[in-house]
C-alpha cells in the first residue's frame, strides 16, 4: 500500500518533514518558512556535553522544537506519541499508513543503512516520513536524500529505538487539525522575535555571547588541550556548522531565504535588505570554516592561526549582534 505522497528534497531533515507533510495536506509551506517560523536559528556552545569526544556546538534549536513552535504559531495541531514497546510502535505506524496518513518519525542515524558509512554517527535527532508499506518494507521519504528510499521493518525498528542522548523511543508525529488558512503574518513576526531574543540572550553560552565564548576558548585550546585536541575540537565546530542539513553557513543561508520570503508576505522591503546582510554573514561563517580547515589540515599549526580564527568568530559575533538588533527593530 502506498500513499500518494510527493517527496521534495530539503537541506534540513526537520524543516523538510514539516514542509513535506504540510504540502501533502495542501498547504504550500517552504523549508525556510518552516525554519523561520519555528525559530530554528541559534548558536549554542552546549556546556558539559561531549559529542564524539569534543565539546558540543549547535547552530539550531533543539530537535523537535522547531515543529512544535511552527505548529503553535500557524495554528495546526500535531499528534505525538512515544513508545516503550517496539511492537506497539509498529502497530500505530501501520494503522496510520492504513488510514492513508503519512507520518513523521524521529530516528537515530547510526543504523540508517542508506546513509554513507562515514556519516553514520550516534545522532538521534534525524527525521523522516514514512508514506507506505509493501510487505515487510516501509517506503521512506528522507528529506535530505534526493530520492525516496526503503527500509525493512527490522531496519526501521532499529533506528526508531536507537539509544543514547535524545533517544527517539519510537517517536511518531503527524498533523491532525488544520485551520482554514494559515496565520502566516503573525507567525512570522513571532518567529523572528523569538530568534532575536535567543541570539541576543544575556546567557554566556547562547547566541552572540555564545559565539564570543567559543572564540575565547579557541584561543586557549592549543595551550590547554594540546594541538591534537584543539584541532579535533575545531573540526567539530566546522562539522556542526556545515553538516548535511544546514544548507551551508550554519543555517544562516536558510534564515536569509526565510527573511526574503517574509519580506514579500509582510510587504516589508527592509526584511529583504536584511536578508542580503544575513547572506553576507553566512559567507563570513564559510570563510571561517575555510581558515579553520587549513589549521586542522596541517597538523603543525601555529598558535597565531588559532587567534586568527578566534578573531574571525568575534567579528561574526559583532556583526550578528548588530544584525539582530536591527531585525528586532524592523518588525516592531
Amino acid at each position: 500500500m502506498q500513499i500518494n505522497f510527493t517527496h521534495h528534497q530539503s537541506a534540513h531533515c526537520e524543516n523538510g518533514v514539516i514542509s513535506n507533510l504540510m504540502k501533502h495536506h495542501g498547504f504550500n509551506v517552504s523549508e525556510p518558512m518552516a525554519f523561520g517560523i519555528g525559530s530554528g536559528l541559534l548558536f549554542c556552545h552546549i556546556p558539559f556535553l561531549m559529542v564524539n569526544h569534543a565539546p558540543a556546538f549547535t547552530y539550531r534549536a533543539l530537535p523537535g522544537i522547531i515543529f512544535k513552535r511552527f505548529a503553535k504559531r500557524v495554528g495546526i495541531k500535531i499528534k505525538r506519541e512515544k513508545f516503550k514497546n517496539p511492537q506497539q510502535a509498529k502497530a500505530v505506524l501501520d494503522q496510520n499508513l492504513n488510514n492513508n496518513n503519512p507520518v513523521g518519525l524521529q530516528v537515530g542515524v547510526y543504523n540508517l543503512v542508506y546513509f554513507p558509512d562515514e556519516y553514520r554517527f550516534h545522532f538521534n535527532a534525524h527525521n523522516l516520513v514514512v508514506y507506505g508499506k509493501e510487505n515487510d518494507t516501509y517506503l521512506i521519504s528522507d528529506p535530505v536524500m534526493e530520492d525516496v528510499t526503503t527500509l525493512t521493518d527490522k531496519q526501521l525498528e532499529k533506528v526508531r529505538f536507537a539509544k543514547g542522548a535524545f533517544a527517539p523511543k519510537g517517536h511518531i508525529y503527524y498533523p491532525v487539525d488544520f485551520p482554514k488558512e494559515l496565520e502566516l503574518e503573525s507567525a512570522i513576526i513571532k518567529g523572528i522575535k523569538h530568534t532575536c531574543r535567543d541570539m541576543l540572550a544575556p546567557m554566556p553560552v547562547l547566541g552572540v555571547k555564545g559565539i564570543r565564548y567559543t572564540a575565547k576558548l579557541i584561543r586557549k585550546w592549543p595551550k590547554k588541550k594540546g594541538v591534537k585536541k584543539a584541532n579535533h575540537y575545531l573540526g567539530q565546530i566546522v562539522r556542526m556548522q556545515e553538516e548535511i542539513g544546514t544548507g551551508g553557513g550554519g543555517f544562516r543561508y536558510i534564515f536569509a531565504a526565510f527573511l526574503q520570503e517574509s519580506s514579500k508576505v509582510l510587504n516589508k522591503p527592509e526584511l529583504s535588505n536584511l536578508s542580503k546582510e544575513m547572506t553576507l554573514i553566512g559567507d563570513s561563517w564559510r570563510d571561517f570554516a575555510v581558515d579553520a580547515s587549513r589549521i586542522y589540515k596541517n597538523r603543525s599549526a601555529k598558535e597565531d592561526a588559532y587567534n586568527n580564527v578566534a578573531t574571525q568568530l568575534e567579528v561574526i559575533a559583532d556583526k550578528e549582534e548588530v544584525f539582530f538588533k536591527k531585525l528586532k527593530k524592523a518588525i516592531q
Binding site: 537541506a11 534526493e146 573540526g235 562539522r239 556545515e242 553538516e243 570554516a289 575555510v290 580547515s293 586542522y296
Partner: peptide, 17 residues
C-alpha cells in the same frame, strides 16, 4: 536551492574525525 557534491573544508573535518 542548489545540489552540492561536497565541500573540502568539511570533508577534511569529517575525514579527520
Amino acid at each position: 536551492t542548489v545540489n552540492s557534491t561536497g565541500w573540502d573544508p568539511k570533508t577534511i573535518a569529517l575525514n579527520k574525525a
